[in-house]
């Protein structure tokens, strides 16, 4: 089976790197976040001034730092996959641990951001901007938590396939953030 795939390039579903079920999940998640961000942009049309005003309450700098944290974490996860493919389990675990620690850093910064909002008395009913803000970033943060759990499970049972599947989830979290961040914080 393995030899056959080496000789002829895989086609269709088999060409997807990693696990089909993970791709189903990734596509589903992207559809959900994509729809959420599109809805945000749509509702923004109804009140551009209110949305701009609300956005001034966000801290784009810390969120920008979070972007760097997350893409770096994604890089470490990608390196873990390479280490795993070379059969170096210790190296894989170290990269996965580093990726997870950056995930925790992301959550800490996010938590500080939420604490700041809450200190300003802002909740999801303050303005529809904040409804989307809490809903989408909150959903995303939950996926960061889930991703950390998945990376922990992967480093418990390191195989090239497990690492690839776990890292794929982590990259999806990354991907969502690089779209969410500019749309919500910078536009």
């Amino acid at each position: 089976m393995k030899d056959a795939t080496k000789q002829t390039p895989a086609e269709g579903i088999d060409a997807l790197p990693g696990d089909l079920m993970m791709w189903i999940l990734i596509v589903s998640e992207l559809l959900v976040f994509g729809a959420g961000l599109a809805a945000f942009m749509g509702v923004r049309l109804t009140d551009p001034a209110g949305f701009s005003e609300a956005q001034t309450h966000l801290n784009a700098t810390t969120a920008g730092i979070n972007t760097v944290v997350l893409v770096t974490s994604g890089w470490l996860a990608a390196l873990a996959v390479q280490a795993s493919e070379m059969g170096n389990i210790l190296r894989t675990r170290l990269f996965l641990a580093a990726a997870s620690i950056l995930g925790v850093v992301f959550l800490v910064i996010k938590g500080a951001e939420y604490a700041d909002k809450s200190a300003q008395g802002i909740d999801f009913e303050t303005h529809s901007f904040f409804l989307f803000y809490y809903m989408l970033t909150g959903f995303h943060a939950m996926h960061v938590i889930a991703g950390i759990v998945i990376l922990a499970l992967v480093s418990w049972k390191v195989t090239p396939r497990n690492t690839e599947v776990g890292a794929a989830f982590w990259h999806m979290v990354d991907l969502v953030w690089v779209l969410l961040f500019p749309i919500m914080y910078l536009l």
Binding site: M21, I24, L25, S28, V32, A35, G36, A39, F124, E125, L131, F132, Y134, M135
Partner: peptide
């Protein structure tokens, strides 16, 4: 997998007009 992914939170479309918080409108719709 698709049924569980969409169905569990998709039930949120029943929460639109029964007094639940407004975010259910988007979670349920999406």
């Amino acid at each position: 997998a698709l049924a569980l992914f969409s169905g569990i939170l998709g039930t949120g479309h029943h929460y639109f007009w029964i007094g639940t918080p407004g975010y259910w409108q988007w979670i349920g719709s999406i």
